[in-house]
Amino acid sequence: MKFFSSRQEFEYSWEEVSTNNWRKYCDWNNQSSHVIAVDTLTRTLDPSTHILRTERLITCKQNAPQWLRTFMGAQDTSLVYEVSYVDPHAKKVTMCSQNLTWSELLSVQETVVYTPAAGEAGRGRTVFEQRAKIIALCGGWQKIKNTIEEFTVERFRQNAVKGREGFERVLAISREVFAEQREQRRLEQVHGGAAVAA
């Protein structure tokens, strides 16, 4: 069993981060070409707590190295099942993911939490906390299990950097687009108002 964790801060409000989290893997993200598809399986809003629960299926291009594929079986894509919980009052997004592919050989359970950064200095900033538990389930030598677990942790480390870079880009473009739309609306109002005045 191995663990991975990381913590990052984004200079965007929790509202912006939690909204854009839904389109983290869109075309604006130039670091996520391995994500082929993101499908929503179920979505429910709890009327008493207002917690929004969403199940998604994430389809990725298989990018495991050949030695691992030989060992675990060859597949073109890998599937991840993710359940997220948004608590709008606590301003907290929790996302729990697990692998569907190779799940009888390797268990990867990841939890990501987005919360507003604390204190006055944290205004308009959001904290991203990620932790993952990796267990190789395959029988056989401990050495092989260790190698597979270590490899998976290393992948998490690489993806944490890429994930941040890609999401930063989505957040920046989204803010730009939003500002453009607001300006457009303002101009329409000015012109509309001028037309009425004339």
């Binding site: 707590t49 917690i51 629960r53 099942y81 608590d87 907290k92 799940s103």
Partner: peptide
């Protein structure tokens, strides 16, 4: 996978605040 996730449901469907 949904069955495996039951513990998370129990934990996170409760309001954190």
């Amino acid at each position: 996978a949904r069955m495996d996730n039951k513990d998370n449901d129990a934990q996170y469907m409760k309001p954190a605040g």
